[in-house]
């Protein structure tokens, strides 16, 4: 085989591997977005009915969500014909974020309600990186919105307002771009 032919094959195959399967990334945004809304809503209801100690158990649902997410990721990787380097990179970013969020939850007795804006900042950073890797602008705009809402939250004296801003950040900066991505078409 001629050397030129070898280089041509390599070039052709590099182009053939450039598939843009990004639509499936949206499913994780929908899952975590809706889970966050459910958890915060349940927390608010329980806080106003049975009181704080019981209401705090609701946050444990995030751990169940994490376990389900890992299971779903593995299943999804098996079902897709190809797993790109981007998929793996993004999964690593969110794994780091999950550890960061767990650390913040662990420090909640010290941080108090300031934990929620901090969690929103961490989510915004990961959403920004995810958007930059996928070249998907709604994630970048969503992350900027979450940064703004988190900044405002730090100055809010009421727990309910902080929770409200957190939910608003998740819905507008995370869930909405997730829905937009799910409605996109993959370039196959």
């Amino acid at each position: 085989m001629e050397t030129e032919k070898s280089l041509q094959i390599i070039e052709d195959m590099i182009n053939a591997s450039k598939t843009n399967y990004k639509r499936h990334h949206g499913i994780y945004f929908l899952f975590w977005g809706y889970l966050s809304i459910i958890v915060v809503s349940l927390f608010m209801i329980l806080k106003n009915t049975v009181g704080m100690p019981v209401a705090n158990y609701v946050w444990g649902l995030f751990f169940l969500g994490f376990v389900f997410n890992i299971y779903q990721m593995r299943r999804s990787a098996r079902e897709r014909p190809v797993v790109s380097k981007i998929d793996k990179m993004v999964a690593k970013v969110w794994l780091g974020v999950s550890i960061g969020i767990a650390t913040l939850f662990g420090a909640s007795p010290v941080l108090g309600w300031m934990m929620l804006p901090l969690v929103l900042v961490v989510i915004a950073i990961a959403t920004y990186i995810h958007g930059a890797i996928l070249s998907y602008k709604p994630f970048i705009f969503g992350s900027i919105l979450m940064f703004i809402l988190a900044s405002i939250s730090f100055y809010m004296p009421s727990i309910d307002v902080v929770l409200g801003l957190f939910v608003a950040g998740i819905v507008l900066g995370y869930l909405l771009p997730g829905h937009m991505l799910r409605n996109e078409k993959d370039d196959v």
Partner: peptide, 9 residues
């Protein structure tokens, strides 16, 4: 060349 550019296929 194909597999160099993806995680698995």
């Amino acid at each position: 060349s194909l597999l160099m550019n993806v995680e698995q296929a």
